[in-house]
Design a protein around this nucleic acid. Structure first.
Length: 368
DNA sequence: AACTGGGTCAACCGCAATAAA
DNA sequence: TTTTATTGCGGTTGACCCAGT
């Protein structure tokens, strides 16, 4: 341990890098790799400390860096991940390919923090500021969030263990993207090590599954109850032992709006999903759903999409509350379905009722 | 034209974790 | 096991730019 002496040495250049220095560093690393950062500057003919060279390479010169404006999807992802991980920028960066932790940190500090504050959301807690007087439901939300964070931590630890044990030199190679890892068991702690509340096991069935999208949906503009919920699966092919993350695309505040989990009860062939709507938040600016609970015994799209997106294959969204989807579906339709926003925007409850009565067949073999 | 204040972002600093001796 | 060297991370700084006065 101890303070690195290199930066304290006199005579080393500091400040903005010149194009000539960049070129020297770049061509040296291209020819020799970086090896020891401490030794690099002398070998490359640079009057810099190794630390400075490393930083310049990682944050600017690496070829696998995307620069420029953050997309809406990236923005949402950062907010979701920040809600889970806090200021762990390097952990967040592993979920955003081609972006550096420094860039994400800057973007958070200069844009997103303000954006959330403007919306009345505390950027530290990711909760509405007016809710300082937290009710029990909010406390439950907090528990859910830390629950998810617990899982994420476990996953990150497993991931870094995996990287450590791998033969790759990761210093110059990007980390193995999570969605390229096919053996999920490598990334999750063994079941017996999981804290009991974390034992939400998501079973994913490969092949064709058929869902009858049913459930109970209550909103501030009325209430409908659908018939019995049923969900049919083909044989179990593999298991994901990670907790449900409640991410979805096209959700303005996904991490905040959707909290809950998917569970598989012993001896039953159904998935149970509970999604709790966070109060005081607006979905896509269209429908405000206040403190209601949406229950599905279906594969609930944002959550399921998160798994698919992060772990295995391209996202599928099967969304029971999208007007666009309602219009596009026949009684039996074949997926995959993308980008259904779960917002109920533009639709009405009659549309939803129509949808609920549909049977949706998603042929997973089409998913590649 | 000069000054000021805010926004942005590359780069630095100090500390902690990890590896090596 | 302890000490030392190296790397990685997150907070912070300061140079630069731009708009407003």
């Amino acid at each position: 341990m101890g303070k690195s002496p290199c930066c304290a040495k006199m005579g080393l250049k500091k400040g903005t890098w010149t194009p000539e220095e960049d070129q020297k560093l770049l061509s040296y690393i291209e020819r020799h790799g970086h090896g020891s950062w401490r030794a690099l500057p002398a070998k490359a003919g640079l009057q810099r400390c190794g630390k400075s060279c490393r930083l310049r390479w990682l944050n600017y010169l690496r070829p696998d860096i995307k620069r420029g404006k953050f997309s809406l999807q990236e923005e949402q992802r950062i907010i979701q991940l920040h809600a889970l991980l806090g200021n762990r920028w390097s952990a967040i960066a592993t979920h955003l390919p081609m972006r550096t932790d420094n860039e994400i940190k800057n973007y958070w500090n200069t844009h997103l923090k303000k954006k959330l504050t403007k919306m009345g959301i505390d950027p530290t807690t990711h909760k509405p500021k007016i809710n300082a007087l937290i009710g029990s439901s909010q406390q439950k939300d907090t528990a859910n969030l830390s629950h998810m964070a617990q899982w994420e931590n476990a996953r990150l630890e497993a991931e870094s263990r995996l990287v450590r044990e791998s033969k790759f030199t990761i210093s110059t190679t990007p980390q193995v993207p999570f969605n390229k890892v096919t053996d999920i068991s490598l990334l999750a702690p063994p079941l017996e090590q999981m804290v009991p509340p974390c034992l939400d096991i998501l079973k994913v069935w490969q092949g064709t599954w058929t869902t009858k999208t049913t459930g109970i949906f209550t909103s501030n503009i009325g209430s409908l109850q659908s018939p019995n919920s049923t969900l049919h699966f083909s044989d179990n092919i593999f298991t994901l032992s990670r907790n449900a993350y409640c991410f979805g695309e096209n959700l303005q505040f996904p991490a905040l709006n959707y909290e809950g989990g998917i569970t598989k009860e012993n001896g039953q062939n159904n998935l149970k999903c509970l999604v709790k709507q966070n109060p005081d938040l607006q979905l896509e600016g269209e429908t405000t759903i206040l403190d209601n609970t949406v229950q599905f015994s279906d594969i609930e799209s944002p959550i399921f999409a998160a798994y698919v997106e992060e772990c295995l294959r391209p996202p599928i969204f099967v969304d029971g509350f999208s007007n666009a989807d309602t219009n596009n579906l026949n009684n039996t339709s074949t997926g995959p379905f993308h980008d259904l926003d779960h917002s109920n925007s533009g639709g009405d409850l009659e549309d939803n009722r129509k949808y609920w009565n549909n049977t949706v067949t998603v042929d997973k073999s089409t998913l590649g």
